[in-house]
Amino acid sequence: MMDKYRQLDISGDTGLEITGESIEDLFKNAAAGLCELITDTSSVIVSDERKVTFSSDSTEDLLVKWLNELIFLFDAQGFIFKDCEIEIENNRLSGSISGGIFNPESHERRLLIKAATYNGLSLLNEGGSWKAKVIFDI
């Protein structure tokens, strides 16, 4: 079985290669991969929930928007993704995210991710499974 996500070695920035059995699964794995770049999520306890609804011009763009939403939630509110229940239809995402609040005193500080970018962005369905590549600005 392929890893749900894999960190890419890019000079100056970082990225993720993500797989998923469905588009929702891929979005969830991308979120998990992103948050693992920020901290060791195993030490984050679920305590909060956030509702999300937004749309975009394409599924690729929706993935960037989703990751930027999670970056915003972390950077503004200290909210770290742990799990989600989302639906994606016609380039519209809706659902809820469960997570915990980052504590710089007790949680590991890894990368400060500024944004998910459109640079080298890809999202494809290959033989029924989904694959994506996203580069982050750090």
Binding site: D57, D61, K65, N68, I71, F72, D75, K114, A115, Y118, N119, G120, L121, D137
Partner: peptide
């Protein structure tokens, strides 16, 4: 970074509106 993220979305639409061809989005 948030200003950049917000306006990248605006510019993605502008690229289509003004018919600009780019080597990287």
């Amino acid at each position: 970074h948030q200003v950049c993220t917000d306006f990248l979305e605006v510019m993605q639409r502008a690229v289509k509106k003004y018919g600009i061809s780019l080597p990287d989005r």
